[in-house]
Nucleic acid binder design. Structure first.
Lengths: 204, 204
DNA sequence: GTCTATAACCTGATAGAC
DNA sequence: GTCTATCAGGTTATAGAC
């Protein structure tokens, strides 16, 4: 009973550091991040970071593993659900992914960059195989279009979805789009991309 | 006449440094790159780098400007050629872009990362407006599909094209694709993406 | 657990000899 | 122009007081 007295808003120091690290690491990447920035963002002292996580590398590893999971876990429940037909699967993937990326716009660039800098290190952690090898989605794609390698559809659907967020800074810094307009654009793409994907599946 | 005696292979020290810098910067980004790495790659001494370029920042700026140009200049001649009809324009954009990215696979991630880290700094240098504002391509897209904002098509076509190379390290590190298979895949996409883009233009 | 002070190290840049 | 040696500044990590 005594334990329940602890207020919910009292997040532990460890958690404060973790959240600050998430923010800074995903924004600037490993190399450009200074542990001082994380400490300041967390509102604690630099020494505490090493007290809880031992090193910048160790802290980064935790965050990175978490973020990689976040990037892929949206897809796991969908790609293997045999009760959902192909068209609906694509729609779910796109809408769920756009929602997730609206909340975490820095995620793709962060993961792509850090994986590129250290490819073998994240081999097991990503579990792309669980997305691409023998899933129900892949089976459905092969059945519908035996003439085209399913990876082509995956790259195209995810490309149309993710590149929306990757190219955002380019369009924004060129003054071609406001934050408001981007939101509208992203919402529109929830409808457009599945429609287009279906058209792609039918092209002769 | 005397000048022609100089052998072609005698590239200047300045050029050696520039080429080494290109390689390392595009591979690792500004923050993760050490001037010592560049010097070593160029086969010269660290001091020479500062002798020729004054600072890491100045050297980076030169490379970055060059690389941004490289990334966009493929598109300029195509998007404004009024003698090429829409379908052919799309085909040219995709094939030229894939060829350029085959030779420079690190380019997109490098530019996207550095632009994000320093958005306002590259505003003028990129000239995305020259690609998106009042070009013949945009005009043709608007004419064909007045109901859909042309930026939707641009993001989708470039997304399908560029994401092929952005996701390459992911698929590779997962052991899902070899270098050989990737080459074949990229070649196939030169045909597939324009075909799909045309299908997208026709979807009701 | 949390802080201040500092050690140990790394990196960009320069001085000065050749 | 090119090198070696070194400085100056910044960053991670730790020691030690509270």
């Amino acid at each position: 009973m005594a334990k329940s007295i602890i207020k919910e808003k009292d997040i532990s120091t460890e958690e404060k550091i973790r959240e600050a690290a998430q923010k800074i690491f995903t924004q600037k990447g490993f190399a450009a991040t200074r542990t001082r920035d994380i400490a300041e963002e967390a509102g604690i002292n630099l020494a505490l970071l090493n007290y809880y996580f031992r090193s910048k590398e160790k802290l980064f590893e935790q965050i990175m593993t978490e973020k990689v999971q976040q990037l892929f876990s949206v897809l796991y429940p969908i790609v293997n659900d045999t009760s959902i037909k192909l068209e609906k699967k694509i729609e779910l993937i796109v809408t769920n992914y756009i929602d997730m990326l609206m909340a975490n716009p820095d995620l793709p660039l962060f993961v792509l960059s850090e994986v590129r800098n250290n490819p073998d290190h994240f081999r097991e952690k990503m579990g792309v195989e669980k997305l691409m090898k023998n899933t129900d989605l892949i089976k459905q794609l092969k059945e519908k279009r035996p003439d085209i390698h399913p990876v082509h559809f995956m790259i195209s659907i995810l490309g149309m979805t993710v590149f929306t967020f990757l190219s955002k800074p380019i369009f924004q810094s060129a003054g071609l789009i406001t934050e408001q307009e981007f939101k509208k654009l992203a919402e529109e793409r929830k409808i457009l991309i599945p429609k287009w994907a279906n058209a792609m599946l039918k092209t002769k």
